[in-house]
Design a protein around this nucleic acid. Structure first.
Lengths: 368, 368
DNA sequence: TTGACTTCCGAAACCGGTTTTGGAACACTT
DNA sequence: AAGTGTTCCAAAACCGGTTTCGGAAGTCAA
């Protein structure tokens, strides 16, 4: 059908100048065996005719697409998250400078992700993949490694040795978090984490523990709870920690969603977050700014991460060995208003809570 | 360099079966002049060898890429917005069913957008574009029309006759908004809008006016203000409206960002949003849920819009006439807690405000 | 038996580039 | 003058598909 918009081809240019098309191609690809005169004439014709080579034709011969792929897992109707939007922006900016493009696809189940991966690879639509939200045992990474197809992961798996990745130093960050809380004067510091299948959840718990240990605090299982990574999980987690014998005066949360839930729960108990109880999240969600009080949280520039990962993938495609392409970055603490020095001791808090917890209804707030 | 991962080509299949490659191609493209026996043998071989045709080679001949493009304008560092993330998800889902893919690019200036458009068209990387965030006079749409390149706009321009678009019925929605506020008992209803170069901003203002007019309310310039579409703009807008002689008891805002700012401003004055002053936004931003009180707002499913627009673009590519591809949708009101019946009259409000506005510092809150 | 029509498929052209091959033209020795 | 390099470019092969063209073989009617 529809012939391509009368686009000008390399043959048009060649004919116009009176040379072979191979010669035009050589000029455009900076071969040296072309006389200055011919080169000039050809470049002029290219410019005059507004010629731009067809990516398709070029790719067919070159065996490259100059296109990278990213498959976004979209959960059960849970809206796409803002982190990814910025992440993609970062990737696109980096690629733009190099004349590459980004193919974006979404997938709504584990099987669907693999099927999409398979299709994109088999049909050769992309040169490499960016994998986000890695899991401890990630089927995508397993598949890509097995196929020996180039990719970079944003996040690690249980065995991160054989491929390129970029990740936040979760351990370090959460150890820092514990230290920060301690330096504010908190002595009992709690942690609400996520399911340990998620690699980062595991690492954040680990970092929290290491941080406490380094401060000489004894390990106390009553200060840790794992919950689904949602606001609801945060509510449940805060309830669990605060109803203990010696409740924490500060709570470190693995994600902002958890922290937002925790803050809400505290408020329904009449506790003032940032004073009576300190809560810190992780993610730097915009929503965190609108919580009352605005959430103190750790964050990483998603845009920077995207750019970084894109450049790493290009290095992979250029054949750099994977072990040179593994990097950790630190997250930055944004102090808003949900953290502060404790206003009461754990004992006092426990006392204040005793009665309120009982009269408190089962669910603290609106759903997920 | 790097030969494609030993991928199997149509020649491999042909050789394996002992037929010409053209025959294989015909089988895969459902030509009818193939005997049942040969067809079966070829399909089996295709399956056994795991053959998938190279998109590149196919496109070269077909002159199509089976790829759609979207260029996301990213302002001066202002993070990518969540609407787009869901919008893209919707597009991707629709395309997935048809075996098409989506190329995503960002552009950070007007010139950059056009340059990217030009490059993608000239190099023939995409078959058509989805244009978001249309402006009244949109250079992208002008360019695409001039090039006669297929596209669909999400939103309209000043002259929306000659191309395919999908848009929210902004007039209708804001007229509904005015009606809703009136039915709650509000008599003075204000409006904070955006710059009129943005088409939707113009339409929303228009809808607000029409709504008031239909209710028999006189037009009052003191009830309207235009501001930059940010939280800051909302603060400034609310200040402007509330410091008038006869301040509105309800404020309709063109976007959630404005509404969030307006709510903040009210709270710094000690007014209770949802009671003393009603504020309604538009966008359904997740952040709106965390505002205190949670923001009442109009919304449209971004995912649905994405799917709709994608399917329209495919119709365009199939040659459907543009005037059959123009559609308006209604936004839905999500009632949370920032609206309600007025607790005082405009006069009472004016009185309550008189002193507070004076002692109020110049800026109400943290920056944008 | 022969001519006309189908049915089915091989061969080759084509899409628009890149890369290889090879040779004409010229300069430079010896 | 013949041999040896260079320099520069035309021609052709190639990438992996799709599509056109045409012909062999089989069927059917006259």
């Amino acid at each position: 059908m529809s012939r391509l918009r009368g686009s000008v081809t390399i043959d048009d240019v060649a004919r116009h100048v009176g040379v072979a098309k191979g010669t035009v191609s050589r000029v455009l690809n900076n071969y040296t065996d072309i006389s200055e005169g011919t080169r000039k004439r050809i470049l002029k014709a290219v410019h005059d005719l507004g010629y731009q080579p067809s990516a398709t034709a070029r790719n067919l011969k070159r065996g490259r697409q100059d296109t990278l792929g990213i498959i976004i897992p979209v959960g059960h109707g849970s809206g796409a998250d803002p982190f990814l939007a910025e992440f993609i922006d970062g990737i696109a900016r980096a690629l733009d400078e190099l004349g590459l493009d980004l193919l974006v696809t979404t997938a709504h189940s584990r099987d669907h992700v693999i099927a999409t991966l398979k299709r994109l690879i088999a049909r050769r639509k992309v040169d490499g993949f960016i994998v986000t939200r890695t899991e401890v045992e990630d089927p995508r990474i397993a598949y890509l490694l097995e196929q020996n197809f180039p990719f970079v992961a944003h996040g690690r798996t249980s065995d991160p040795s054989g491929y390129a990745w970029f990740d936040i130093d979760n351990e370090e960050t959460f150890a820092t978090g514990a230290r920060h809380l301690y330096s504010l004067g908190h002595e009992r510091i709690g942690f609400i984490g996520g399911p340990l299948e998620l690699n980062f959840a595991r690492q954040r718990l680990e970092g929290y523990r290491q941080g406490l240990e380094a401060l000489g605090a004894a390990h106390d299982a009553g200060l840790e709870t794992l919950q689904p990574l949602s606001e609801k999980g945060g509510i449940a987690g805060a309830r669990a920690l605060l109803s203990g014998e010696a409740p924490p005066t500060a709570i470190l949360c693995a994600t902002d969603a958890l922290a937002i839930g925790a803050v809400q729960f505290c408020r329904t108990l009449g506790l003032k977050p940032g004073a009576d109880v300190t809560v810190i999240g992780y993610d730097g969600l915009p929503a965190g700014e609108y919580v009352d009080p605005p959430l103190t949280t750790f964050t990483q520039s998603a845009q920077e991460a995207g750019g970084r990962v894109a450049r790493m993938l290009i290095d992979v495609l250029d054949g750099k060995p994977p072990h040179e392409l593994q990097a950790l970055a630190k997250a930055k603490l944004i102090r808003r208003a949900s953290d502060g020095a404790p206003t009461m001791t754990s004992e006092a808090l426990a006392g204040a809570l005793r009665d309120r917890l009982n009269e408190q209804p089962l669910s603290g707030s609106k759903g997920e």
